[in-house]
């Protein structure tokens, strides 16, 4: 079984269902549009800000504010790519065609990750440039220190969110169960843990909070995170690796 055959097959699968197009375009549009809106509001707020707030004003990070919502569409993309196989019964047909389950899963993940990366990177650049346009005189430029890293990091962050979701979906199989866990996890629990001082120490090791450090250029005033931008991304990669390993292990030993 040549892996290239399976990759080709997975590409046909992913491009021939409607959910791919609508989840990815929703992720891009929401991220960019919300980022522009928040950038515009932040620019208006500048006049009323304290000097301390102005010191930690991070125009790059602000232009990525839309990701908090856009990443939910990315989660849906990641979940559906994997769990569609189970919810439709396609998994049996797929595994009968490709009985090497590792080849099957990692070809699928490779194709979906590559596609997510292209969309995420483009989204990140567009969100940055349009966000900066809204920020006017307070904007950052791509040549400033750390900015290019943050913009590339934005693309990596969104991609990793999608891959993490694929791993979780590979473990749970059901799309509803996967979304029911991932959506509140990223939208509520992470935010709550991060905002309560007692749990902040724990919250900052969650995949989204750690990973989003890569998009920060100016550190917040009360910054006490024990890791830097790449360290944060590394923590997120660990989460993703664990999810993928779990998904692979279960697929390997489970009956289809």
């Amino acid at each position: 079984m040549a892996a290239t055959q399976v990759v080709q097959s997975e590409w046909t699968k992913i491009r021939s269902v409607a959910s791919t197009v609508w989840t990815l375009s929703l992720a891009a549009v929401v991220t960019v549009a919300l980022g522009m809106l928040i950038s515009l509001l932040s620019a208006d707020e500048w006049a009323t800000m304290s000097p301390r707030e102005r010191l930690s004003f991070d125009p790059t990070f602000i232009s990525f504010a839309g990701m908090s919502l856009g990443q939910l569409a990315m989660i849906v993309f990641g979940v559906l790519v994997v769990s569609n196989e189970y919810s439709t019964g396609m998994i049996r047909t797929s595994l009968a065609a490709v009985p090497q389950r590792g080849t099957f899963l990692f070809s699928k993940l490779a194709v979906a990750t590559a596609l997510a990366f292209v969309v995420s990177l483009a989204t990140s650049f567009v969100a940055f440039f349009l966000g900066q346009a809204m920020l006017g005189e307070h904007s950052a430029s791509l040549g400033d220190a750390g900015v290019l890293r943050a913009v590339l990091g934005g693309g990596l962050y969104m991609t990793l969110i999608a891959v993490f979701s694929m791993g979780v979906a590979a473990m749970l199989r059901s799309p509803m169960l996967s979304l029911g866990i991932l959506m509140p996890f990223f939208f509520l629990i992470s935010a709550i843990l991060g905002n309560v001082s007692a749990t902040k120490k724990v919250g900052q090791f969650l995949p989204d909070q750690a990973g989003s450090k890569i998009m920060q250029v100016v550190a917040p005033a009360d910054n006490d995170t024990p890791y830097g931008p790449w360290g944060g991304l590394g923590i997120m990669v660990l989460w993703v690796a664990v999810a993928l390993l779990g998904g692979y292990t279960l697929l390997k030993k489970r009956d289809a």
Binding site: T12, S16, V17, A18, N84, E85, T88, M90, R92, A97
Partner: peptide
Amino acid sequence: AKGMHGGRSAFNHLLCLAQSN
């Protein structure tokens, strides 16, 4: 079981199977 993704066309369903083998 039906063993296919309902959102995929008959042609693409068979194409992805053909390509994998």
